[in-house]
């Protein structure tokens, strides 16, 4: 996580701009934004291509791959655009992020799990395929 930021930092120092010591968070550099943008374009284009071109035979595999791409792209945005590091705001930003992620996982997985079972166990079967 800190590698691109470290690179941004050295590029910043080489460029000779004065660094504001009062502001204890990273701002990124032109290079950082362009790398993030290039990665995002790639990580966006491939899922669209996979779905629109119906490249893979298996729909499940396609779904799995585009979800993986989305996860990676979210991390890319958080690192390159939001400049999130484990040391930002003395680590409190990271703590808030981790806490939020835990809540999100509980809320999402819990809702889907409970409602899936509710649907399969209590609904009358309009669609017989659900029984398989």
């Amino acid at each position: 996580m800190s590698a691109p930021n470290a690179g941004a930092h050295t590029a910043h120092a080489e460029a000779g701009h004065d660094h504001h010591p009062a502001e204890g968070h990273a701002h990124g550099s032109l290079r950082g934004y362009l790398i993030g943008f290039a990665l995002s374009v790639f990580l966006t284009a491939v899922p669209f291509w996979l779905v629109m071109g119906e490249v893979l035979e298996s729909k499940q595999l396609t779904a799995f791959v585009i979800m993986a791409f989305a996860m990676v792209q979210i991390v890319v945005h958080i690192v390159f655009f939001l400049h999130m590091t484990s040391s930002a705001e003395e680590g409190w930003s990271m703590m808030a992020l981790i806490f939020t992620l835990i809540i999100i996982v509980i809320a999402m997985a819990g809702s889907l799990w409970v409602m899936h079972h509710l649907n399969t166990n209590t609904m009358p079967f309009h669609d017989m395929r659900q029984m398989l």
């Binding site: 990124g28 995002s40 966006t44 779905v51 945005h77």
Partner: peptide
């Protein structure tokens, strides 16, 4: 219409990049 959604996604992604440029100008 996925083509439309792709264009929309590009718009938002480009706006993110240009906001980054605005921040770089602010730093200067």
């Amino acid at each position: 219409d996925l083509g439309l959604v792709a264009v929309n996604t590009a718009m938002l992604l480009l706006s993110s990049l240009t906001f980054g440029f605005a921040m770089l100008e602010m730093m200067k």
